[in-house]
Computed example of a mutant assay.
Amino acid sequence: MTILIWANVVTAIIAFLLMGLVTIGFAPHLRLRLKDHDANSLMSAFVALTSSLVWVRLLWWSLLRPLAGAWEWLPPGIFTLSGQAINTGFNLWAIAAALAALGALYRSLPLPERDHYNWLTVPFYPRRFSIVWRW
């Protein structure tokens, strides 16, 4: 059981950090003009709301609630085998979604700029800073 709690927390931290990068990368592209109801505004609203949902879910179910149980603020019954397995599966799914979003950001860069960025640094485009680590 302890290995499942560890797997849940580790995958949650990775997913949370990757979703943070996705939020940073997509923030300049969001156009929330709900008065116009054009397709781009509604898709931007969808991305913003879905990302918020993933953030809140990761924060509560996979990070804060296990910590509260470990500190004995919540009853120990929440640490069930199925609950940890489901949370770990969700975290892996969130990691895959975040990597897909980062890959989309990377592929949206102009070809000459791609040499200076990788999937983990692309959210900081077009800010100019030295990148030593490349994939």
Rank of each mutant, 00 (worst) to 15 (best):
T2R: 09
V9N: 10
T11I: 02
I13R: 04
I13Q: 03
I14W: 01
A15E: 02
F16R: 07
L17C: 08
L18P: 09
M19H: 10
M19P: 00
M19C: 11
T23E: 07
T23M: 13
I24F: 01
L30G: 01
D36N: 06
D36V: 05
D38C: 01
N40A: 15
S41R: 05
V47R: 12
A48Y: 10
A48N: 11
L49T: 11
T50K: 04
L59D: 08
W61I: 04
S62Q: 08
L64Y: 02
R65G: 00
A70P: 02
W71K: 11
L74P: 04
L74N: 01
P75H: 03
G77E: 15
L81R: 15
L81K: 11
Q84A: 15
A85M: 14
I86Y: 10
I86N: 10
N87D: 14
T88S: 12
W93E: 08
W93Y: 15
A96E: 06
A98C: 10
L99G: 07
A100V: 08
A104R: 13
Y106S: 04
R107T: 14
R107P: 05
P112N: 05
E113S: 07
D115V: 09
D115M: 10
H116R: 13
Y117T: 01
T121L: 12
T121R: 14
P123G: 08
P123S: 08
R127G: 08
R127Q: 08
I131W: 01
